[in-house]
Design a protein around this nucleic acid. Structure first.
Lengths: 191, 191
DNA sequence: AAAACACCTTGACATAAGTCAAGCTTATTA
DNA sequence: TAATAAGCTTGACTTATGTCAAGGTGTTTT
C-alpha cells in the first residue's frame, strides 16, 4: 500500500532515503469497506488522506436531506475536508467509500512539520494546492456559465476515469443537476 | 499608495526593515481609470496585483459574447489570473476597473524569489492561497446546491462591501443568474 | 444643458431543468 | 437462489429561471 504512494511521489519529489523513511513512518494505513465512512459531519478532520486503491466520495447533506457531491477521490488522489483541517472546527462534510478502499493517513501536525523541514516536499505540496485551486476555479466557471449538457461533457473530458466508475446520480449531484436530467442528456449523446 | 499595502501587510507578517524595503522596491504602482484594462484575453499574466484603492472586475467572455464575472477585487485584495501566471499560457480572462483604481504590481519572478528567501512571507502567501481556495470551494458548493435567492443572500452576507458597490448585473453574472432574476429577487427582499 | 449612456425594474412569454412516479436491470444480501 | 436494494431510464407535468422588450432614473459626456 505504501508502494502506491511511493510510485506516486518519487517522480515528483526528490527525497533522501532517510526523509522517505521518515515520511512513511508518519502514515497509517486504513482500509474502508464499501459504504464505510472516513469522515462524518460533526467530526474534526485532522489528517491528509491519500487514496491508494478504491474510490471515495465527499459530500454535504442539506436541510432537506439532499446530498451534494463535492469531490470524488480515486487512486493517487488526496481527500479530506480542508476547511475543518485548517480551522479546527467540526466538519459539515461526509466522506465515505464507493468501493472497498485503501487510504494512507498522515496526521496534520506531523505532515506539516515534515513539510516545514523538507523544502522540496513543501514546494510539492504548494504546487498541488495551487493546481487544486485552479481546478476549483474552473469548476466555478463552468457552474455559473454552462448549460447541463456542457457541464456533463466537460466532466467526462476532465475526469474520464470517474465518468465510468461513479454512479450517475452522484455525478449529477456533483454538477448541480438532477439525476433525471443527466440521464436524458446521456441519452442524446449516445444516439 | 505603498502605505495601504504596508498597513495591510504589517499586522500579518513580521518583516525586518531591510526586507520591507526590498519588497517595496519590487513593486510598481499603476493607476487605472474607470473602464481601463489591467489584463486582456490573449496576454500572459505575470504579476501579483494588490489593489490599494478602487475596484476591479475579472471575467471571461464566452462564444456568444456574454461576460461571466469571476471575481471582484477592492482595496486590500489581490487580483490576477493565476492560471496564466502558473502555466505561462495566454489568459482567457479580462480584468478592468469599475472605478478609478490604484494597483501595486509585483513581478512574479521577483515576488516568488522574495517568498523563497523570507519564510515568514512565504507562509503568509501560503495561508492566503489556502483561504482563497476555501472561498472557491464554498462558491462551488453554493453554485451547485442553492436557488437564486439563497445565492444572492449568501453573496450579500459574504461580501457586503461588494453588494453596495458593484452593478447588479455583474453580481448576477457572478452568481450565474440573469440580471432580471436578480432584480426580482431583490424586489421581494425589500418588501 | 442636451444628448447619450449605464443601470435597474417590470411585464409577457419561452424554456431548461426539476419533480414525481413507474418500470426495468443489475448488484447485493439473506 | 430468492429477495431486496441500487441504479438507470422514460413519461407526464410543474416550476424556476431565462429572454425579449419597454420605460424610468440617474450619470457621464460633449
Amino acid at each position: 500500500m505504501v508502494n502506491v504512494f511511493e510510485e506516486y511521489l518519487r517522480p515528483q519529489v526528490q527525497l533522501t532515503a532517510e526523509e522517505w523513511t521518515r515520511l512513511q513512518a508518519l502514515s497509517s494505513a486504513q482500509h474502508l469497506r464499501k459504504r464505510q465512512f472516513l469522515l462524518h459531519a460533526g467530526q474534526v478532520w485532522q489528517s491528509y488522506a491519500f487514496v491508494c486503491r478504491g474510490c471515495l466520495r465527499q459530500y454535504t447533506i442539506d436541510a432537506k436531506g439532499v446530498e451534494h457531491m463535492l469531490k470524488f477521490s480515486i487512486e493517487n488522489w488526496w481527500a479530506g475536508d480542508r476547511e475543518s483541517l485548517v480551522t479546527g472546527q467540526p466538519s459539515r462534510q461526509y466522506i465515505d467509500a464507493l468501493e472497498d478502499t485503501d487510504v494512507l493517513l498522515f496526521p496534520k501536525v506531523d505532515f506539516d512539520q515534515f513539510a516545514r523541514e523538507v523544502p522540496a516536499f513543501h514546494a510539492f505540496i504548494d504546487g498541488l494546492l495551487g493546481r487544486t485551486y485552479l481546478a476549483s476555479q474552473r469548476r466555478v466557471q463552468t457552474a455559473i456559465s454552462a448549460d447541463a449538457e456542457t457541464k456533463y461533457r466537460e466532466f467526462v473530458q476532465t475526469y474520464p476515469q470517474l465518468a465510468l466508475r461513479v454512479p450517475l446520480r452522484m455525478i449529477a449531484s456533483y454538477l448541480g443537476l438532477s439525476a433525471e436530467t443527466l440521464s436524458r442528456i446521456r441519452g442524446l449523446n449516445t444516439k
